[in-house]
Design a protein around this nucleic acid. Structure first.
Length: 721
DNA sequence: GAGCACTGC
């Protein structure tokens, strides 16, 4: 019952901190689940259920500096090494195979090396894809060290902004998105004789599309009697059936991993407040486990992390147990602040990391002994018909649950506390919904068309909803990128659009810019819009951050405000310091600069004149409307300029907008337009449904602009309204 | 009137 809380006095502390107790965590029921330990072996038929926590096998956050001899000793100890002959035979025999390898099996670093040692790639090269840049780079560095060669020669990597390969490169690690872009130019992927698609279980939209591309390339190369293409699908979890079916019942090989056992605990009853349950569990464990046991807590987002962090710090002042260091971790956190997650806590101090699912696969934190899993995740889905995106907290899949638990068993045996009952876990879906089923498709469609592939017959494991495909084709038609929805042949404009590695709505903006004499500004703006949020607003400093933001504000709205920020950043001499003072994200702004350079290079190749509109920001907004004309909203009550007069309440009512699809939407509270008289019409970059429908990044426009920029759409839109 | 998971080109 509540004994554990009473014994550590948590209950009173929680009350003192204003935390309401809805449900105590009752005795947590333990269930030991054995993870694969040091046994290694290959078995094709007997697939055992063990903890599946698919992360690449590379040791992250550790510089490669071991001696060549040490590296060889370490290699020989890897499970994959012990079965290498068998593996090589299978690879020789089969054109396609699936390799299920647990964490620590060594598949990602070793298989490409084994292939190369046997020269199985022949005259071609081996491509190994990864969903993340860091992984592609660090693994390539590791493999180059193991092979005792310089990076960029035999072993290389290719990620956006960085191509460290040469004509001699035989083993090339690259992001899946990068291989996809190579496929536009060369759909048969002729450079490669072997393609390894790693982390296939993550089902990124790029990996899913690549599945189809390699399948078609294999077939066509066979038909044309070219060098055959071998394909190896590597995955951590065991969604084998769908993969196998898709790849013509190809053989599946199972590799055991090498991780430590993790004991799984579930709560006896459902918790209706997982934040509260997490805080309770943290202090319950805090009072009963040694101080050198670090905790990793999975939460859904920045705000939640900040709230929980605040509560923990308040309670920790009076709670039983060693001193505590609480570290937040989420992608938007500036890297300097992320660093303390990896810094060792002083002896006798416990480290508690509060993280989003960034710690699930993207980053590895050493020495985690306890994982506390709330079992929820924030997930984005897209509604093709309305063009709105929904960001909602949902329960995560079983695979994610295993993945999270596995984070406690990386360096030592550990424990995972799930804040939901075991039977709830059993009822959850095995895997998360693949990205391709819940994402905008215009970009991928454009890419396929540019590669000369017919989307209507393109083989996908999980086809996206028909509505999404239709909506995306319609959008491409409205941009003038394809001839018609029934005959989606790329136009000259569409061909040009496909060359830009950004959302089609923004490549449309860039290609329209010369007409408005504003490519200079459009490049900067699109670069920022294509990057992550440049504003960093910690919860407790909102007021201060808001004040600092004033100097960048433009009465025209958020887009010009962003442009002002970007221009000021480019001019600032001490960028890092300047960003800190202005509550801006240095990393994301630097990234935007790189993106701008890349976009500029493409514009130059297309001979687009790079001219500036100066202070004529109307020009820039009209140009922006060329790509965002589907994202207009009108002030409800027909402009409202006449009657507004009243007080605060009337102002609030006047801020209601209606979108082109007839949906009620509100300006996001962070918008630069908030402080001003609401404009009769505006355009927005994104429509996000959280509690309500919010327009993110919005700017004022003249209602008649829409008729000038997209007359067909404007006409249709008016009849709809 | 009150809030924005994670990747990638």
């Amino acid at each position: 019952m509540d004994s554990k809380y009473a014994s550590v006095g948590i209950e009173n502390n929680l009350k003192a901190c204003g935390l309401k107790r809805k449900h105590a965590i009752e005795n947590i029921k333990a269930k030991k689940i054995k993870l694969s330990n040091d046994a290694a072996g290959v078995s094709v038929t007997n697939i055992k259920k063990v903890v599946t926590n698919g992360h690449n096998d590379v040791i992250e956050n550790r510089p490669v500096q071991e001696s060549a001899q040490d590296l060889q000793v370490a290699r020989r100890r890897l499970p994959v090494f012990m079965v290498k002959n068998r593996l090589i035979d299978e690879i020789k025999k089969n054109d396609t195979m699936i390799l299920i390898g647990e964490t620590g099996s060594g598949k990602t670093t070793q298989i490409p090396q084994l292939i190369h040692e046997q020269r199985l790639e022949g005259a071609g090269a081996i491509a190994v894809t990864q969903p993340r840049r860091v992984a592609a780079i660090t693994i390539a560095l590791r493999v180059a060290a193991e092979m005792n060669t310089e990076i960029g020669s035999i072993v290389g990597y290719s990620v956006r902004f960085e191509d460290v390969t040469s004509p001699r490169t035989k083993v090339k690690y690259l992001t899946d998105g990068m291989l996809l872009r190579e496929a536009i130019v060369d759909p048969l992927l002729k450079k490669y004789s072997i393609i390894v698609l790693d982390e296939a279980h993550e089902r990124t939209i790029s990996t899913d599309v690549l599945f189809g591309i390699v399948k078609l390339a294999q077939k066509e190369r066979n038909e044309k009697k070219q060098i055959p293409l071998k394909v190896i699908i590597m995955s951590a979890t065991m969604d084998v059936d769908s993969f196998r079916k898709y790849f013509h019942n190809c053989p599946v090989i199972y590799l055991e991993g090498r991780t430590f056992p993790v004991t799984i605990y579930h709560t006896k009853t459902k918790q209706d407040d997982y934040q509260y349950a997490a805080v309770c569990t943290i202090f319950q464990l805090h009072a009963t486990t040694p101080a050198n046991h670090d905790f990793l807590v999975f939460l859904t987002g920045q705000e939640e992390i900040e709230t929980v962090m605040y509560n923990i710090k308040q309670i920790a002042k009076e709670a039983t147990g060693p001193p505590m260091r609480v570290c937040p971790l989420y992608a938007g956190l500036p890297p300097a602040k992320q660093l303390q997650v990896w810094r060792e806590a002083p002896p006798g101090t416990r480290k508690v990391i509060l993280s989003t699912n960034i710690a699930e696969a993207s980053v590895t934190i050493p020495n985690i002994k306890c994982v506390i899993d709330t079992g929820v995740v924030k997930e984005r889905t897209w509604c093709g018909v309305s063009g709105a995106e929904r960001l909602a907290v949902r329960v995560c899949s079983q695979a994610a649950g295993w993945q999270r638990a596995g984070r406690a068993g990386r360096t030592q045996p550990g424990a995972a506390y799930r804040l939901f009952p075991a039977k709830d876990f059993a009822a959850r879906p095995h895997h998360h919904t693949p990205e391709i089923v819940r994402c905008p498709l215009a970009s991928s469609l454009l890419l396929l068309l540019a590669a000369g592939i017919d989307p209507s017959t393109f083989p996908l494991i999980d086809p996206p909803p028909l509505d999404s495909v239709k909506a995306s084709l319609l959008l491409l038609k409205e941009f003038g990128a394809i001839e018609s929805e029934a005959n989606p042949k790329l136009t000259v404009l569409g061909k040009k659009m496909s060359m830009f590695p950004i959302d089609p709505k923004y490549s449309k903006v860039l290609l329209s810019a010369p007409e408005y004499n504003c490519l200079e500004e459009a490049l900067s703006l699109v670069a920022v819009l294509s990057s992550e949020n440049v504003f960093h607003t910690p919860m407790h400093k909102r007021e201060e951050a808001f004040k600092v933001k004033q100097k960048f504000l433009s009465p025209l709205g958020d887009h010009i405000t962003l442009l002002n920020v970007f221009k000021a950043f480019c001019k600032a001499p001490l960028k890092k310091q300047w960003c800190k003072e202005n509550f801006l994200n240095h990393k994301n702004l630097t990234y935007a600069c790189d993106v701008r350079q890349q976009l500029l290079t493409i514009c130059q190749k297309l001979n687009l004149p790079v001219s500036s509109c100066g202070q004529a920001h109307d020009q820039l907004l009209k140009c922006l409307l060329c790509g965002l004309f589907t994202n207009c909203a009108w002030l409800r009550g027909g402009g409202g300029a006449g009657g507004a007069g009243g007080g605060g309440a009337a102002g609030a009512v006047a801020r209601r907008y209606v979108t082109a699809t007839g949906r009620a939407a509100a300006l996001h509270p962070g918008s630069a337009l908030q402080a001003l008289r609401p404009p009769p019409a505006l355009l927005y970059s994104e429509l996000l449904l959280t509690g309500r429908a919010y327009m993110l990044t919005a700017s004022a426009i003249q209602p008649h602009w829409l008729h000038q920029v997209a007359p067909d759409y404007a006409r249709r839109c008016r009849t709809n309204r």
